[in-house]
Design a protein around this nucleic acid. Structure first.
Length: 490
DNA sequence: GAGGTCACG
DNA sequence: ACGTACGTGACCTCG
């Protein structure tokens, strides 16, 4: 079957993808081998010269040679099932999504661009006024000199590792009380980010042929099994700020009869933590359908769920995020803006209330030290040789990676399986609706008229029940929204 | 091309 | 004393 795919001359795109899935990138063309103009493309021979010394005779032949060299590596690392049961079936779904593309309301964006330009101009003027002179606001270096050498906002400014003054959002926010201009600098930063990266750039990505935006999904770019998206990246379209939401609104159906449908997994990483660790308390909270951050707060602070205050919930939420990132008192303290002591106390309370989570963390690190890798529920692996490093900082980083990968990676496995099946269902049921985007825990569709119920049914079936071994441990839930643009579908 | 920053999950 | 939350990609500056 593989050989057939490799040999089929009309399946060049699939061949690229197969090689990418096996290798970690697309090595087919000579262009790729020697590097594409203007892009920092990895040369094939940089990856592993011994394992991958092949000869670029003819495209299909290169792919075949790589296949023969890489299949044994797949066997050795016991990841054949990940390849054949998850990655290969996902491949046609990705191909279809890239080919479909998504429509963009470029007129709305042009209008928004003008509005931003005005606001950016206003902010710049105020900032230059307060500074006493003009400078390049896009240069963190120049901004640092203005803030810390000319305006002398603080005695001991924070520095980056190269000795420059730090001017990132966190640093500036902490300085907001020192000078009213800080807020305007933050405004400027946000607006120029939106304008240059999205509002002005995205219309350039609209295909002249299809009039839609076609991203590239990378199947083997990440260490955890997640997808990546590039050229343009459609997995980081703004949503958190009001101005950012204007950009999401510009992602629309092809015509007024169609709708955008978004389906996302609810709290999927926490559900996976609950399932993997088999923590009774957390599983119960999900079974009862209690808001998980409130449930966590109730346990940590020893109060009833109803008595949880917003501040308690906010802290519990950060702890929950922290768990899947490989928590530390320092990291939590920094994000909550509280003393390390207090953060350590919260973490201690947390582990006393969720003892199985502590065991999961300890067991996972021990497993990784023993075996050299960690794995997801589906057997996808990440090798972490640094887990044995004598450098404590390096070792700690590897331990956080070890904790995070099975969680993030299992979520990736789950949605990939769902996508493969949904794509098949769409084809076999001859639906007009199309799967367009994946954003890690969300799938975006173009919904054709009268297909609401059938598509919802498919999603419920395929997304919720993608990994039966997960369903055995914890309820999996999805949320579906429909609207006239991507924002409204949320 | 590296560094800094910031958009997303 | 030191220094970090996990995973990405894009844009801008500057040497």
């Amino acid at each position: 079957m593989i050989a057939h795919t490799l040999a089929a001359p009309d399946q060049r795109h699939s061949m690229d993808r197969l090689s990418e899935a096996l290798l970690g990138y697309r090595p087919i063309s000579i262009t790729t081998l020697i590097g594409e103009k203007g892009k920092d493309q990895k040369s094939m021979l940089e990856v592993d010269p011994d394992a991958l010394a092949v000869y670029a005779t003819e495209d299909a032949d290169v792919t075949w040679q790589l296949y023969e060299k890489l299949l044994p590596l797949l066997k050795e690392s016991e990841q054949e099932s990940v390849f054949y049961d998850i990655e290969m079936p996902t491949l046609p779904a990705l191909e279809a999504m890239e080919a479909s593309g998504i429509s963009l309301d470029i007129f709305a964006l042009e209008e928004f661009s003008d509005k931003l330009a005005t606001e950016i101009e206003n902010a710049s003027s105020e900032i230059f006024n307060a500074s006493g002179h003009e400078f390049n606001l896009n240069s963190p270096k120049q901004l640092g000199v203005v803030l810390f050498e000319e305006l002398k906002l603080v005695d001991k400014p924070k520095k980056t590792k190269t000795g420059q003054y730090k001017t990132d959002e966190q640093t500036l926010t902490s300085l907001a009380g020192e000078h009213s201009i800080i807020r305007r600098i933050l405004d400027y930063r946000m607006m120029t980010k939106l304008k240059s990266t999205y509002v002005d750039a995205l219309p350039n990505s609209v295909s002249k042929k299809t009039n839609r935006i076609h991203t590239t999904f990378h199947q083997t770019a990440t260490t955890t099994g997640r997808l990546a998206s590039s050229d343009p990246n459609l997995q980081n379209i703004p949503i958190r700020t009001d101005l950012g939401q204007e950009i999401r609104k510009a992602f629309v159906p092809e015509n007024a009869k169609n709708k955008i449908l978004s389906a996302d997994y609810s709290q999927i990483e926490l559900r996976i933590i609950a399932a993997i660790s088999e923590d009774e308390g957390m599983i119960q909270a999900f079974q009862k359908g209690i808001d998980i951050h409130s449930a966590t707060a109730a346990k940590v602070y020893g109060v009833e769920v109803d008595a949880v205050e917003p501040e308690m919930r906010r802290k519990a939420k950060m702890v929950n995020f922290g768990i899947s990132y490989g928590i530390s008192a320092f990291g939590l303290a920094q994000r909550l803006g509280i003393p390390r002591r207090e953060a350590a106390e919260i973490i201690d309370n947390y582990f006393n209330q969720f003892p199985s989570i502590r065991s999961y963390i300890d067991d996972t690190i021990a497993f990784c030290r023993e075996n050299g890798f960690v794995e997801t529920l589906s057997g996808r692996r990440r090798y972490l040789p640094d887990i044995k490093s004598s450098n404590q900082t390096v070792k700690n980083a590897a331990e956080r990676n070890a904790i995070n990968m099975p969680i993030q990676g299992t979520a990736a496995d789950l949605i990939k399986i769902a996508m493969a099946n949904i794509h098949q269902d769409i084809i076999s049921q001859k639906l007009k609706s199309r799967m367009l985007l994946q954003v890690h825990d969300e799938l975006v569709f173009e919904l054709a008229p009268k297909e609401d119920d059938v598509l919802k049914g498919i999603l419920e079936n395929r997304m919720v029940y993608a990994l039966p071994s997960l369903n055995e441990k914890v309820p999996v839930e999805i949320e579906i929204g429909i609207g006239k643009n991507w924002l409204e579908a949320h």
